[in-house]
């Protein structure tokens, strides 16, 4: 039975249900339990934005507070995964991933391949990304393209509470390392989520709005911004089909290509910087495999190729908004040779 809960609650529920189902599932990260030491304060935080709040009392001993040393606890989580656990490590901001890159892309991502399939690494690394919280250049990036680039990693970017729960459950049950990207600005959105457990398959995009004039391929928070733009465009007579990739690795090429074959026009909306981004990746895919269907050049809507500004006025301009998406859609519908 579905009821409305928030994105934050959906992630919490996925963790709780998987911990209940499988005792090898553990949660670890900075302040995930609370860290204050006294029982009354144990739930003080539950992660920096409260996702794991309350888990510690349900599963004592399986919610671990770690030192503020990402390289250490991400390495520990990966090691535990190779030894039979299913750890879910919370790396507060994806911006900090740099200090543990070796553990992630050179170790976790390589084990299954280098040991001829004999090793599995069922680790999930949850992390926050995205601009909009006035958190400045070192706490606001959208770095999912970096991880999408690495073979051996799976990369998940849920946009809705329903997808967040089902994709996190799938991530925990998956035998490969999964990078699970949560946008800071989405924690308080709510939507219908079944109470029961369910796993959503990776590599299956979701068509969140159907339309015949323009395909908008997007992911994460930008799904909502794109839907806002599609609503405005519909009022102006332009019908957009909005495709939420849901996972960037594996990638559902078929849904993207079929949609562009139907509309003949593509706008890719991606909060990451434009170079070597999901937008360039999808553009290349469509240019190679659906060139004959295109009736206009592809448009990309990205953040600029700059650090995320601290100035709130600049940050607001930095994040792609519905107006920019609508303008891009008008560019492709208005294009002629």
């Amino acid at each position: 039975m579905a009821r409305n809960i928030t994105y934050r609650e959906a992630i919490h529920e996925a963790l709780a249900q998987e911990m209940e189902r499988d005792e090898t599932v553990i949660v670890m990260g900075e302040d995930n339990a609370g860290g204050a030491g006294a029982p009354g304060d144990d739930d003080a935080w539950g992660g920096v934005l409260g996702v794991t709040k309350g888990l510690y009392h349900k599963f004592p001993g399986r919610v671990l507070d770690t030192p503020i040393s990402e390289s250490a606890f991400i390495g520990a989580a990966i090691g535990a995964a190779t030894a039979g656990m299913r750890p879910v490590a919370e790396l507060m901001f994806v911006d900090f991933m740099g200090v543990c890159f070796d553990q992630i892309y050179n170790q976790a991502a390589k084990f299954r391949y280098m040991f001829g399939g004999k090793a599995v690494t069922p680790v999930v690394i949850r992390t926050m990304y995205g601009a909009g919280l006035r958190a400045a250049a070192q706490h606001s990036q959208s770095l999912y393209p970096l991880f999408t680039h690495i073979p051996g990693l799976k990369v998940v970017t849920p946009a809705t509470p329903y997808d967040a729960k089902g994709l996190l459950i799938a991530a925990i049950r998956d035998n490969d390392p999964v990078m699970f990207f949560e946008h800071k600005a989405l924690y308080d959105i709510s939507g219908p989520v079944p109470e029961e457990s369910y796993a959503l398959p990776f590599g299956e995009a979701s068509v969140v709005r159907e339309g015949s004039d323009v395909t908008i391929v997007t992911l994460g928070r930008m799904v909502h911004t794109s839907l806002e733009a599609a609503g405005q465009l519909a009022a102006a007579g332009v019908e957009c089909e909005v495709v939420d990739l849901r996972t960037t690795s594996p990638l559902d090429e078929d849904t993207v290509l079929e949609s562009v074959e139907g509309t003949g026009r593509l706008v890719v909306v991606d909060e990451a910087h434009p170079r070597c981004s999901i937008a360039t990746d999808i553009s290349a895919l469509v240019a190679r495999k659906a060139f004959g269907s295109l009736r206009a050049p592809i448009e990309m809507v990205n953040a600029p190729h700059t650090p995320v500004p601290f100035s709130s006025a600049l940050e607001d301009m930095y994040i792609p908004d519905a107006q920019r998406i609508a303008n891009a859609a008008k560019t492709v519908t208005g294009w002629s040779r």
Partner: peptide
Amino acid sequence: TRQLVDDLLAYKRLDG
């Protein structure tokens, strides 16, 4: 409709 198929798929994906 797409909604009908999506609803059925969501049901089929529930554990059990």
